[in-house]
Computed example of a mutant assay.
Amino acid sequence: MQDTKQTSKLISFWLRHHPEDGNLQLDDFGWALVDELMQSLATKGQVFTYAEIVELSKSFDKVRWEFSEDGSKIRATHGHSIEVILDEKAVRPPALLYHGTSSNKIDAIKENGLLAMQRQFVHLSTESEVAISVGKRHGKPLLIEIDAAALAADGWVFYRTSENVWLTADIPVKYLKIEQK
């Protein structure tokens, strides 16, 4: 039996950070051919059918990959450290969004705001509970409420990549309300 958790991490790594490690060619929008992905997995001894890749993509707690309308391409929905164009996903955000991180980051955030760091965008959630659970992965959680309405009014572009994942550029401190949990 194949280790699907390791396979999903490998696919995400290739689609988000290093497509060249999987011999994948991404277009400007981050799309790779599913056939090429399956061939790359096979060279690692991981043979998957198309249906199994689709099923694996549905096994996550949130959408991490998406397929093109015709099903021939796949891409990561968020978390990129490589530059991809997500303009077709730009939408007006809800008034408030949330970000969860570790409480040991509070001083840096109060000084610099929320920064994308090694990613292309800052990741946000519509639900405070989800943001807190993300923060718990890194230690004692820190919940940050973002005034998304004010950011949008001031020109920030937001991308909705799944039901609960929103992306935007670095966020200055003045748009943040910080709460330790």
Rank of each mutant, 00 (worst) to 15 (best):
K177C: 04
F158V: 06
I11V: 07
E66G: 05
K136N: 13
N23P: 00
G139A: 09
G113N: 05
A90H: 11
Y175Q: 05
H18M: 07
N164L: 05
P94N: 04
G100T: 02
D3T: 07
K9I: 02
G135L: 08
S102E: 07
V47G: 01
S59C: 03
M117V: 15
T161E: 02
H17S: 14
I171G: 03
S81D: 11
V122L: 01
T77A: 05
G22D: 02
W14S: 05
E83S: 11
S133H: 03
V130E: 00
K73C: 15
D170L: 11
D3N: 11
S133P: 04
K89N: 12
M38C: 10
L176Y: 00
A148E: 02
N164P: 03
G30W: 07
V157H: 05
K181C: 01
G135W: 09
S72W: 15
S103A: 12
S12W: 03
V130M: 01
I132Y: 04
S102R: 06
D70I: 12
N104E: 06
E66L: 14
L151E: 04
E69Y: 10
T7S: 04
R64Y: 14
D154M: 00
K177T: 13
E36Y: 07
L142G: 12
N112P: 07
K44T: 02
L115V: 13
I171T: 07
F29R: 13
Y98D: 00
D27I: 04
S133D: 15
